[in-house]
Design a protein around this nucleic acid. Structure first.
Lengths: 248, 248
DNA sequence: CGTCCGGATTGATCCATATCAAAGTTGTAC
DNA sequence: GTACAACTTTGATATGGATCAATCCGGACG
């Protein structure tokens, strides 16, 4: 019997960091061209997940970090009682799993929000490599530190800002992340449901919905379902700084 | 003219990680006895700050991480508008500044909550050293990852939990951190003001105060000013899991 | 082409916590 | 010991967003 060609699992198209369009965002960013092979030696490319599939969950033994190659990923913590707290959204070029480097199983659950492909970096090998490439080590510290800062930023949003401010901030964050990938910063499609936005921002779905329509009525955005157009970026930025204006 | 003896700055009592009582909590934790010298070579010990003094702020160029040796430290972000968001409290054995490793100036402001001494680890040297000691590198990843998780935990608390749950969680967190240092887990003195607690937990001071008295009336704690005694730890744990119970 | 179903929107009501206001308390400097 | 300043507590009121309850929409599928 002829084996069907195993598209994803066993054709690990080695050596494509070199030609990956995300090499200026992802880990290769920190590596000299001539050292890139060493990263390619440890990466497992091309794993694909359909919308809704888990890349890992809190019971999976922690082995690897994952770089999003295409699609998008939602991470969340599920409490004993089944409650979910969305902790982040990850877009192409971003690294998922850094929060788990202190645990034996993953610290969160990662789910593909759409058809998503990821590159897998086994941490043991990654740590070996960062021990040899100071630039890469530095970059890892950089990424982790940024993730800590993101957390603080989120905490700030949650504890001090109104629903409108939180949503404006999220839209602008997404916008700038699309822009980094040279996609339109004003015209994009949200990878996540209203529910996920609500959960992430500590709001009720209904509130998210209402704020979207309010923004729409004020001419700040145009939104139909997940399609969003930012009509007035400056005004949105003003919204996020409203808490600032209180002081004046 | 005889120079006065420069107590802190130039008598860097080299080599005291060896005999430091926190060596099982702090960075030495990850290092073999015989490699400990290499850490001591880069650490600057014994800097002392009085209550209210800044160890660094957001305009200070980022150079070093600081391990708390005694006392305690509050970190917070100050926004352009002067608003403060407390991002964490650090106790002896804990490392301050990990969130800044992606920036040229510190990402937050660190202030001594009481008379506090810290050990300074210049990051440049620290990165060199972690490149050579895989165990230490691993430990750095571990610490940073934990800080990310703390952030997620806090976000969860802020977005899903009531005032009582948040405060119970903080008390229990402090309790277990005192315990790690072999101090009483039920009888301690809060290093921070009600205001800082409120800010950290996204509450108004008045609410914090009210919850403290409510807990007291319920016989969960005894509190006079900053002195706290946890009378019923199990009940407090139940409080933090109240959100869980909703689901049953 | 209708039906069904999950997600999204809209409306009405309620509540936890903020906010405002005023004492009380503690520490500390003189 | 007195007095100021900073912190804490307590009370009364207001409100942003949660919650409850329909209804609406769009896409998958028979």
């Amino acid at each position: 019997m002829a084996q069907p060609i195993p598209i994803h699992k066993h054709s690990p198209l080695k050596a494509s960091c070199h030609q990956c369009s995300l090499s200026n965002l992802c880990l290769p960013l920190a590596i000299e061209e001539n050292e890139l092979d060493r990263l390619e030696d440890i990466v497992q490319q091309g794993r694909i997940f359909n919308r809704g599939e888990h890349i890992f969950d809190q019971s999976t033994p922690f082995r690897s970090c994952f770089a999003v190659k295409s699609g998008s990923v939602k991470t969340s913590i599920i409490t004993e009682s089944g409650e979910e707290q969305v902790t982040g959204f990850f877009m192409p070029g971003e690294l998922v799993g850094l929060d788990s480097m202190s645990s034996s199983t993953y610290a969160c659950t990662a789910k593909a929000l759409e058809r998503t492909s990821v590159c897998e970096f086994p941490v043991e090998k990654l740590e070996d490599l960062t021990g040899k490439l100071p630039e890469l080590q530095h970059h890892m510290y950089h990424l982790m530190s940024q993730e800590i800062q993101n957390g603080h930023q989120l905490a700030m949003l949650l504890s001090k800002n109104t629903a409108e401010e939180r949503i404006a901030a999220l839209l602008l964050s997404l916008s700038s992340r699309f822009q980094r990938r040279r996609l339109s910063p004003t015209n994009f499609s949200l990878p996540m449901a209203r529910n996920d936005i609500a959960n992430f921002l500590g709001l009720a779905v209904e509130t998210v919905s209402r704020v979207f329509t309010r923004f729409q009525n004020q001419g700040l955005i145009r939104a139909r379902g997940r399609e969003v157009e930012l009509l007035d970026v400056e005004a949105l930025q003003l919204v996020t700084r409203d808490s600032a204006r209180q002081g004046c």
